[in-house]
Amino acid sequence: MGKNKLLQFLNRRGAIEAISLCTAIITWEIVADFIIRNPIKLPSPYAVFLSYLKLWEIIPVDIGISLLHFGIGLGAGAAVGITVGMLMGWFRVANRALDPMVEILRPIPPLAWVPFAILWGGLTHYAAGFIVFIGAFFPILLNTYTGFREVDKTYIDAAKVLGCKEERKMIKYVAFPFSLPYIATGIRIGMGVGWMCVVAAEMFGVSKSGLGFRLFQVFWPLHMIDRLVAYMIILGLVALVLDHLFRYFVEERLLKWKKGMVIQ
């Protein structure tokens, strides 16, 4: 009887996940309290929790500032990435003209652009946004490119027969909607890379606030390691929420038509 009840409980949605998470936190607490016993090397979860009580006023502001940097970069990255990706995917000449530059610039880590971000933008939100832009731009570009490249010939033929002649209309009515799932994937990857860049950009002092800036400030000179961990967790959680929001609005709603397409 007891065994059955246990199985029933484990089968419930989220049960195993919750148990696993709790175990991890308890293990962390035990390791911090009884093995490491040095809050500078590893703060306990309880200490991190307490630090939130002191940070609750400031954290929303930092989240807001980081989201601002993120938004500037991602917005610009999407606008430029989709446009260039579209041109490169659809027009052979554009591809040949732009491909060498893209291939040379792409492997440069976004962080290598920090000096230029500061030189060009000063210590402003735009400078931080620029680093995010560099990170988000390439995945969006490449995925958009792939989408436009893979437009099914049948759809193009069908559109032609239905009177779609100009390139502009072919892009608007066929290639762009066809590429939307690819573009969405690009944006999702771009969001991930961009968020990493937010922290990096703020760490390098491009701006005087934001999660990344604060994360380094509490480490040096303040040495408040519990707060450092608190900020790390916030960074993870914000990205998680952003990703879920994106998936909910884009994949579940905008790209509903894509369901079941794989089966065809």
């Binding site: 033929d157 069908a158 032609k160 027969v161 239905l162 009177g163 066929v174 939307l180 038509w257 065809q264």
Partner: peptide, 17 residues
Amino acid sequence: PSQDRGMVFQEYSLFPW
């Protein structure tokens, strides 16, 4: 191609979006 000739394709050519 022109709209004076309609075509139905062998594969499913409906625009899935």
